[in-house]
């Protein structure tokens, strides 16, 4: 497989009868994603689309099914609770799409995650896709192409943009991972970069970051010392005014270090090719490794 998900991943959907699920699940299923069960308190015993069983609790679902991943599509005020329930159910991968989860709730989730066997993506993320195999997220289906570039990003639409630039140039992706735009979240840029480093199907990576926090710098340090695969990057927010929250709860410049320019300089110092122009993110990767090593499926 690429990383984290493939065509054999069994998925449990939290909030399966809600609006977000109604909108996104058909596209996930059309892409080949194996949705095996759903959770919605009070609707246990019913079925989604007359096919997929719904349970009141995660505990009941994991007794009946072998679940590899949870996809959380519930309103933000209940999202942390869903994550905690999935952790208790020992679900290996939890993907939380919900936007607007209070930081306080996420601090509790982080404490619980520490002693668990679960990995968390998000919240406030676009999800994850292994092109040609499975999609647990809200990205448009057609923009992806199976291939060898791993993409990790804090932003949804900017990931779509990056992926589309690659696909338009005939370059496919191994897995595209949205880690989310919140200040306290699950897997970090570094966590995902490490997975791509180990993944034989990934030959190069693109890291899309933005203002706020120090995750990109942390990943860059690792890449500099241990990375064997070429990495290109883009950092959004060069023109963002200081102290303003730029849409994402985590995208805020607080002090000199979290600004875009500081990040870009640090990344460049660690040997990462940073695209200064967001319409040329794929070009930045092509310039350092050439299209030959990036084409082809395996």
């Amino acid at each position: 497989m690429a990383i984290l998900i493939d065509c054999n991943t069994n998925v449990l959907v939290h909030g399966i009868s809600g609006r977000a699920a109604a909108f996104h699940l058909p596209y996930c299923e059309a892409y080949g994603t194996k949705v095996v069960a759903g959770v919605r308190p009070g609707k246990g015993g019913q079925h989604y689309d007359n096919r997929i069983p719904i349970y009141d609790t995660v505990r009941e679902a994991v007794v009946q099914h072998r679940i590899h991943a949870s996809l959380i599509l519930v309103p933000a005020p209940c999202a942390a609770d869903s994550i905690l329930e999935a952790i208790e159910g020992e679900i290996p991968l939890i993907i939380c799409i919900s936007e607007g989860v209070p930081t306080r709730d996420m601090l509790l989730v982080r404490e619980r995650l520490k002693n668990s066997s679960s990995l968390l993506l998000g919240p406030n993320c676009s999800g994850i896709i292994t092109p040609g195999q499975a999609k647990l997220g809200i990205m448009p289906n057609y923009i992806h192409l199976p291939g060898r570039v791993g993409v990790v990003s804090r932003s949804g639409t900017l990931t779509f943009e990056t992926v589309w630039q690659l696909t338009s140039r005939g370059i496919g992706q191994s897995t595209c991972v949205g880690i989310g735009g919140d200040p306290v979240h699950g897997l970090s840029q570094l966590d995902v970069i490490k997975m791509f480093e180990k993944d034989p199907q990934t030959s190069a990576m693109i890291m899309v970051g933005e203002i706020g926090g120090e995750e990109e710098e942390e990943a860059a340090e690792f890449i500099h010392h241990y990375g064997k695969k070429p990495v290109a990057a883009y950092i959004a927010g060069v023109t963002a005014p200081e102290g303003k929250r730029m849409g994402h709860a985590g995208a805020i410049i607080a002090g000199k270090k979290s600004g875009a320019i500081h990040k870009i300089r640090t990344l460049e110092k660690h040997g990462i090719a940073v695209a200064r122009d967001p319409s040329r993110i794929a070009e930045a990767l092509l310039e350092i490794c050439g299209s030959q090593c990036l084409r082809g499926n395996h």
Partner: peptide
Amino acid sequence: LTNGAGLAMATMDLLHA
């Protein structure tokens, strides 16, 4: 008029550059 925080910021950056 843009959607998504990242793309919105990137659009600002693109214009500015």
